[in-house]
């Protein structure tokens, strides 16, 4: 269990936030934080920086697997919907064609809609899955209290190490960020 750190006003500490001068500085600082063995930390950049996953040691996301599972579920449901409607829900002979299905033939007519529903499910899965894995929507975050942090969506680059990290130590963490080339360091209250 990590220690709980508080400020002199008894506010709980969320962590330490440090600003870096640019993408390259941030990139190398991230490598140092990664190598120091922290786990509850993050960097904040106005745009996705190429290769950041490696510099931060981020594991590959499971999102593609989620999308594949949901997408193929959509494919299955899409086919079932059409098969059930045509064979059971509302049997209706058009142009002397079979009702449609794998057994009695005529499954081909179901392909376009099966495909479309598979795509629809995959699209929802990729966006909702991405947001859910990111813990969004979450409109409130301790970092937003820092005015300086708001520039991360403009042209500034930050690293934040959370107090909940097992390796977090106010002095050592601060020293690490300073050594990594931070241009400013701030304490972030919860």
């Amino acid at each position: 269990m990590a220690k709980v750190y508080v400020t002199e006003n008894n506010d709980r500490i969320h962590g330490i936030m440090a600003e870096f001068a640019g993408p390259a500085d941030l990139y190398h600082a991230c490598e140092k934080v990664r190598d120091a063995g922290y786990s509850k930390w993050d960097s904040f950049t106005p745009f996705p920086i190429h290769g950041m996953e490696e510099a931060m040691g981020i594991k590959r996301t499971i999102l593609p697997v989620i999308v594949a599972v949901v997408g193929f579920t959509g494919v299955g449901l899409g086919y079932l919907l059409q098969w059930w409607v045509s064979n059971s829900g509302y049997q209706f002979v058009t142009q002397g064609k079979p009702y449609g299905g794998l057994v009695n033939g005529g499954w081909q007519v179901f392909v376009p809609i099966t495909f479309e529903i598979g795509i629809l499910f995959s699209a929802f899965a990729s966006i909702i899955g991405m947001l859910a894995l990111n813990g969004l929507p979450r409109w409130n975050h301790p970092l937003f209290k820092k005015e300086r942090f708001l520039a991360s969506s403009d042209d500034k680059f930050f690293i934040s190490i959370e107090a909940g990290d097992a390796k977090f130590d106010p002095d050592a963490t601060r020293a690490l960020l300073e050594k990594a080339g931070a241009t400013s360091i701030e304490l972030v209250e919860e």
């Binding site: 991230c30 993050d42 960097s43 904040f44 950049t45 106005p46 745009f47 996705p48 920086i49 950041m52 996953e53 931060m56 981020i58 996301t61 999102l63 593609p64 999308v67 997408g71 795509i119 995959s122 699209a123 990729s126 966006i127 899955g129 991405m130 947001l131 894995l133 990111n134 969004l136 929507p137 979450r138 409109w139 409130n140 975050h141 970092l143 937003f144 991360s152 969506s153």
Partner: peptide, 25 residues
């Protein structure tokens, strides 16, 4: 913005989702 905070961990999944959407679109 759904509370988007420019996090690199978020960007990683965001780029994955973007690529998947491009792939299925």
């Amino acid at each position: 913005a759904l509370g988007w905070r420019m996090s690199s961990r978020h960007w990683h999944r965001y780029e994955a989702a973007y690529l998947i959407l491009a792939g299925i679109s």
